[in-house]
Design a protein around this nucleic acid. Structure first.
Length: 550
RNA sequence: GCCUCUGUAGCUCAGUGGAUAGAGCAGCGGCCUUCUAAUCCGCUUGUCGUAGGUUCGAUUCCUACCAGGGGCACCA
């Protein structure tokens, strides 16, 4: 008896009762875990939802359903309570069966079909390649990667993508900064002052020892190109060490390159396409897109009076490129400092003929600060991602960043992240996992194996609670994917870990002293192992390791 | 001025219309010769920012207001 079985059985009963007088979908027949366990294992508010359209009293309607629900295999008790809740209690064996289901499903337990058929482009981080990843990027790296994982686990086809802003003045400023450092000159105006610039300059000089003798513009170009390649490699390495994977690194520069056959760049082509759709006009020597037709608060410039295209033009070309690659949904994960982009991106999607409510999602996250201090790359007081990882560990950092909703302000406290106490929930969860492993190991040594599984024996209150939480993983994952809120997985894991620790303290898997090994011990080993599987699968979705020992 | 996010226990925060609003921390008090005490058990804490509205029911949805964060380029 999985929750899905119960849910579909309930759905059939309600549908039959309706007899075509009202239509409902499976999603309407929502089964929930009641907060108060006195209200049973599962509860449904379907009677209250339907009472109005049926013109009947919710309690009366619920009461009519009770006999049929009671007849479902594995259901031991059905009550109508309060304004019309239907509270369902399962018999012990039916509830315990989930432990076996989990172990059969293994690493795929929790995966679901909520988003089957959805093709998603998930863009995040996209930091300028003019310096190392720093604190400001950590949240998007952890969150974006976790979102991609829950989407995939829910059946979506996901491509993770990093947009490299490798065009424009900033790259020249970057090159000029490296050149200045190579020559021992002060950082130029609008340049990058960080210590890493010195190291990049040293790399450039290794490859081009006569850099200082080249004509200035050429030297800037050489410093820029070599520095860029080096910096991008370091960014990729940092992301790997943070367990964040990108399928595609997309170069903005490639949007500017002209096709030798047509003489047009992707940006030019985008302008043509938008013009063909009737959304482009000229004013004050510039070329504009009428994004206000699609809800933007002002029109946007594609080509400036001086003939140079804007960053927005590249955004447009990039969006069209994603559309051409066939993604039904383009997700952008941006910081709150970019929230002004939402309107123009949505308008862009609409102008391109897409549905802005379906084909594009712009997720805005609040910024992170560390011990109250905000950091600026330009100011040179950056805290690099690598330093943070080395300081507190990738697991603690990723878990902390993933356990809060994106729109919740977040501050990092290095001392808490390093602490081995309940201040730092990652250890609470990881410890629970390692405990399941050590119990399993000791069980093997004590001759307890999984040769017998008798779920009706899992009748202790702590086991009921634990089983109840274990069966929720699939719906938690589906919900996290649907809402793009992976923090729900983290909060759920903390709940599972709590139930496990409490179970551990009252229910022994191993026999005491000279006690014989019983079927209860064997069956509990199933439950122990199933718990380990659930925690491992959940942590995997957050990109956090599940150690066997701590 | 406009847009947007946030406001829940002393602190940090969960809670996508349900029943008596939760967790961790902090505070006080318990349990280690038996599967790892990084665990567990007990006690204590609320005008869910304010005021209206929507309905069987609102911390949750809508409106206004108050307070705080962020944003409103022919920069990238």
């Amino acid at each position: 008896m999985t929750p899905e079985d119960l849910s579909s059985a309930l759905f059939d009963i309600v549908t039959a009762r309706l007899d075509g007088s009202a239509s409902i979908t499976a999603a309407d027949v929502l089964l929930e875990r009641p907060r108060n366990r006195d209200h049973g294992d599962w509860t449904s508010n379907i009677a209250m939802k339907l009472a109005k359209s049926l013109g009947t009293n919710p309690r009366a309607f619920a009461a009519e359903l009770v006999p049929e629900i009671s007849a479902i295999a594995g259901v031991s008790k059905v009550d109508v309570a309060g304004p019309g809740f239907i509270n369902i209690t399962l018999d012990t064996a039916a509830a315990g069966e989930i432990a076996r289901s989990i172990l059969v499903a293994g690493d795929s337990y929790g995966h679901n079909h909520q988003l089957d058929g959805l093709s998603v482009n998930m863009e995040f981080v996209s930091a300028n390649p003019t310096g190392p990843l720093h604190l400001g990027h950590t949240r998007w790296a952890a969150l974006g990667d976790a979102i991609a994982r829950v989407l995939s686990a829910s059946g979506a086809e996901v491509t993770t993508e990093y947009y490299i802003n490798d065009a424009g003045n900033q790259m020249d400023n970057f090159g000029a900064s490296i050149l200045a450092a190579a020559k021992g000159e002060p950082t130029p105006e609008k340049g990058y002052p960080g210590e890493y610039i010195q190291q990049l300059a040293a790399k450039v000089l290794e490859q081009v020892p006569n850099l200082a003798e080249l004509p200035h513009d050429e030297a800037v170009g050489v410093a820029r190109d070599i520095g860029y390649r080096q910096q991008l490699e370091e960014i990729k390495t940092s992301l790997e060490s943070f367990n964040v994977h990108f399928d595609v690194f997309f170069s903005e520069l490639s949007l500017h390159e002209t096709d030798p056959e047509t003489g047009l760049s992707l940006i030019d082509q985008a302008a043509v396409r938008l013009r063909e759709q009737g959304h482009v006009y000229e004013k004050d020597d510039a070329v504009w897109v009428k994004t206000t037709d699609f809800g933007d608060d002002k029109d946007r410039v594609l080509t400036r009076g001086n003939g140079i295209t804007t960053y927005f033009a590249a955004d447009a070309a990039y969006y069209l490129n994603k559309k051409d690659r066939g993604f039904t949904e383009k997700i952008y994960l941006l910081g709150a400092d970019h929230h002004g982009y939402v309107g123009r991106l949505k308008a862009l999607a609409a102008a391109a003929g897409d549905d802005p409510d379906v084909n594009i999602s712009v997720l805005i996250g609040q910024l992170v600060n560390l011990n109250g201090a905000k950091l600026s790359k330009r100011a040179g007081n950056i805290i690099e991602l690598d330093d943070l990882v080395a300081w507190v560990g990738a697991d603690a950092l990723r878990y902390w960043l993933a356990r809060y909703p994106a729109d919740s302000p977040l501050s990092l406290d290095g001392e808490v992240l390093r602490s081995r106490t309940n201040d730092n929930p990652v250890f609470y969860v990881q410890y629970a996992h390692s405990r399941t492993r050590s119990v399993a190991k000791n069980a093997a040594a004590a001759g307890v194996d999984r040769s017998v599984f008798e779920p009706s024996l899992l009748s202790h209150e702590a086991e009921t609670e634990l089983l109840g939480s274990l069966q929720e993983l699939p719906r938690i994952v589906a919900q996290s994917a649907e809402l793009r809120e992976p923090h729900r997985v983290a909060r759920y894991l903390e709940e599972v870990a709590g139930h496990y620790h409490r179970w551990y303290s009252v229910c022994r898997v191993l026999p005491l002293g000279d006690e014989p090994v019983t079927d209860l011990h064997r069956t509990r080993l199933w439950l122990n192992d199933a718990t380990g599987q659930v925690i491992r699968n959940g942590l995997e979705l957050l990109g956090v390791s599940a150690p066997d020992r701590m």
